[in-house]
Amino acid sequence: MLQVKDLWVTYKSRRSAGVAAVRGVQFDIPDNTFVGLVGESGCGKSTLGFAIAGLLDPKRNNVQGEVMLDGQDLRKLPSEQMRALRWSKLSVVLQGGMNAFNPVLKIKHQFMDVMREHSNMSKAEMTERIAELLSAVDLDPSVMESYPHELSGGMKQRAAIALSLVLKPRLVILDEPTTALDAVVQRSIVTMLSDLQRELGFSVLFVSHDLGLVLEVAQRVMVMYAGQIVEDKPASMLMEQAEHPYTQALLGCYANPRAEHVSLSGIPGSPPDLRAVLRGCPFAPRCAKKMDICAVETPRLVKREEGSVLCHLYAPKEVTVR
């Protein structure tokens, strides 16, 4: 359904060549799939989400490549048509999405605004749809009569998710939807979201820094580092046999809190400066399995039976002919 081909995003800068936040990303999301996009802050994961949703200002960003949604290249659509597509085909929930509600309007009026703009439902139909959506996200339908300040953070984020589903989109992009929330609320929202995704059959691109959380809910996980997707695998496979040293290091940051002995490891160093031209593998300076080639040659994508990995360790041996 969604196909992203060789996508590059560069933040323009007057002083330097700009920051290449997304570097030649390629993937697709089939119908009815929960995909997680994981990486540290500054790896370009949010930029990638925004680029797909067409939310980047073309004056400040240079976006290249294709974003195909059901055969239409979103990048070539005039802004009027893109506007019509948002909410109805693709919608976005942001990290601060719960604070994006208008504080002086009741929740139901914020839903109705979107519905009026994009459909011609009657008032009764709208009310019915709102009640249905609120129950879907485990909120009491009476919440629609509340003002945003009367709801807790978790409830607002639930309402924001309900709002994103109002026009039955095919794809919902969620950028760190639960990061500002507590562990218990986060858990219940993520579980709710994954149930809802399977019941209603839309696709999700769940952007998060939390690999542990994503592994629990997503069917497929893409790991991003320095603007590139370095590993892309079904969640169960990634859990058992992560191949990229970066993914392995990220997994080391988690532990079972009930285990007999618990220790946490981090990843030394910090991600590269994306303003610079990168030579070799960008993860090499922090990598535990670095080889000579990593500093000089950019790794190529290695296809796996399912998914792919971007690392010299797995490059097919070149056949030398005598």
């Binding site: 909120l139 709801l151 562990a183 218990v184 219940s188 579980t191 629990e216 809190p257």
Partner: peptide, 27 residues
């Protein structure tokens, strides 16, 4: 409940287990 909520890929949870407890009440 707090322990169950910790992201823990090493011990997959029974899905939907913790869907109920969070209270749907207003502030």
């Amino acid at each position: 409940l707090l322990l169950e909520s910790v992201p823990n890929p090493f011990e997959p949870k029974v899905r939907t287990a913790s869907r109920a407890p969070e209270v749907s009440i207003t502030r």
